[in-house]
């Protein structure tokens, strides 16, 4: 499953681990199409992998929307990850390195924050939404 070339927005339902692969594959593909470097492609794919995996672990299921938000000045990929799970009770704590309620390394959320250029969380029980974006200026060749 890939991002259709014309689509500015593409939503992938996240229900099992193959959806995680699809989501990060699609994100990487869009990044490649926008001619982002391979390090940036890896960063984006890893960030998408982290967040969609969190959905499976903490909420069971959700969605991942990948948006090509580029304009004349910059290339921008925005990713919105949403679920209707129990939510994150203490966001600053969840963003602290080494903190995990699920037995993980506790590096996922703070790590994603460092990998991406924009990162926001809104969370309440029943609806959690994480938005992140990667921005790169346009060069004459892109």
């Amino acid at each position: 499953m890939t991002v259709p070339p014309e689509a500015a927005e593409f939503t992938i339902p996240i229900r099992d681990s193959t959806d995680v692969l699809r989501a990060r594959g699609s994100a990487r593909e869009l990044a490649a199409r926008l001619k982002l470097g391979s390090a940036d492609q890896t960063r984006l794919a890893t960030a998408v992998s982290e967040l969609t995996r969190n959905i499976l672990q903490y909420a069971g299921e959700g969605t991942c929307t990948i948006i090509n938000a580029s304009d004349d000045h910059q290339r921008c990929i925005r990713v919105i990850v949403e679920d209707h799970g129990p939510g994150i009770p203490d966001i600053p704590l969840a963003l602290r390195d080494g903190y995990s309620t699920g037995g993980g390394l506790g590096a996922g959320l703070p790590g994603v924050q460092r990998l991406m250029d924009e990162f926001q969380i809104t969370s309440q029980p029943g609806h959690t939404c994480l938005t992140m974006a990667m921005n790169r200026p346009r060069t004459p060749f892109t």
């Binding site: 391979s38 390090a39 590096a107 990998l115």
Partner: peptide, 14 residues
């Protein structure tokens, strides 16, 4: 570990 992978792992704090 690829160069891209190494960069990403460091940012993740692994």
């Amino acid at each position: 570990i690829s160069p891209d992978g190494a960069q990403t792992l460091v940012k993740l704090g692994v």
